[in-house]
Write a protein that binds this DNA or RNA. Sequence first.
DNA 1: CAAATAGTGTCTCTAAGACAATATCAC
DNA 2: GTGATATTGTCTTAGAGACACTATTTG
Lengths: 274, 274
Amino acid sequence: MNQEEQEFLKKYRLEDYPRPSVTTDIAVFSLHSKIQAGYRREPDKKLCILLIKRGNPPFRDCWALPGGFLQPDETVETCAARELKEETCADVHLLRHIGIFSQPERDPRGWIVSNAFLSVLNQENLKNMEIQAGDDAACVRWFNIAFQDSGQYNILTLESEKTTISAKLKKIRNSFGMYEFEIIENNGLAFDHAKVIASAMTYLRQSSEQFDLLFDFLPEQFTLADVQKVQEAITGEPALTANFRRKLTPYVVETDTFTKGAGHRPARLYERKS
Amino acid sequence: MNQEEQEFLKKYRLEDYPRPSVTTDIAVFSLHSKIQAGYRREPDKKLCILLIKRGNPPFRDCWALPGGFLQPDETVETCAARELKEETCADVHLLRHIGIFSQPERDPRGWIVSNAFLSVLNQENLKNMEIQAGDDAACVRWFNIAFQDSGQYNILTLESEKTTISAKLKKIRNSFGMYEFEIIENNGLAFDHAKVIASAMTYLRQSSEQFDLLFDFLPEQFTLADVQKVQEAITGEPALTANFRRKLTPYVVETDTFTKGAGHRPARLYERKS
DNA sequence: CAAATAGTGTCTCTAAGACAATATCAC
DNA sequence: GTGATATTGTCTTAGAGACACTATTTG
């Protein structure tokens, strides 16, 4: 850096220009087992998303994605991981940036630009981790998520034991497989988080078709049927086993271990390929 | 909004918390014809990107993507369109957000988070539009772009009449087909714009394989060969005509018009579907 | 006619979808 | 054996890739 630059920088003050606040919002997904149906039946798996009940205004008592303000000396990725840890005690490894929401009126507190992230918690981590409310959040809870596509509209339904949240969204633009959403009805979600969740679901479904992100839901070793169940929970559609396995093969490596004591033929365990 | 919320908002001051500056950087691509080779030969088409020569520090005299600071009352998309217009007099319709760059040390002026966008100018607009330097920029120029993939590394080469810019990048992570890049060598580009351009090229190539974005390079009516030339310029690879046409058919609609006076068989003109 | 590009036909091979058949455990 | 899930086989069809062939203009 030459002298001219150094002098310029000495005089330059970013604070002289208007700046927004920047936040991150994280959509964390996982898979939860339903109650055993019958005799030796495998339990059904449902796709879940982690929400917190807001303890402070604005939108006090509404449910929201975990997240918070970007701080100096961190990237938006670091910020997302930190906020998630603070608010839900959840440790995640992989975060994917799925969009930016910058409508000036999107937050009643003022000019706030939000970065949406997607992440996945695997079932093993879930067991070892008590998801619990951190600083800001009054309450943290997993919600079963359903995202139905009826042509022009999408219906988002979030259910936990005592609470049901729903939203109706309109798909507005298609760009390279991704959509943008407009909120038509909103029932219990804070800010524009219905939009963010809709984008996250679209992203998740898209990537699951390419077997991406699926393994993040599972422990290191898993059966092929496990993977299929994850995909079915994400897409909401059943898959044909034989075909699913064939397509999956290039992405996994055989191990010499098998499941045991399941009341039926043992299944070979696999690991993800590189 | 209830009274509690209103009182909370009255007292709440976003300015009490640290905030970054937010900018947009736009990678604008277009196709330029090379000089006619022979007799009745069609001219070759080359992929180009629009850069400006910085007139002020930091990085004075380096080449950079057009872009600038987010202002209140605009979205990042509006900001990108406005900055592009101001700096290059180019009017673009469709902008795609392709990433966010938030490394705290990425800009010597301080804490600046940048949003990368991708856009395309079609050849008709190009003719009617004098791309020229606006306020901030000393000079605006189109550069032929080459982006070679040698396994672990990518070589980016930007050429205009008098100037050659180059950069070497390392692919570091693969996420759902997208990569992240690390700059190994940088020769003439400002900031981390080598990274941004690499991401934009990856995105462009990905979408062009699904025939997305291709039509944005062309006027409303075009021949199938036109589309093929666009794809070849983007991927850097030749395509087999018969197969390309078959795959393209679902995305276009026939018209009753044909090209004329080209010195060879006339070609039917098509329009994009939907 | 020659030069140049436009457009079609067809063969092969791979992969997806549908569905049937067989295998192996616990009880 | 029964109930449950695991795993393999195979038929059909759609589509990608390669390449040869025909068509139509201007000079």
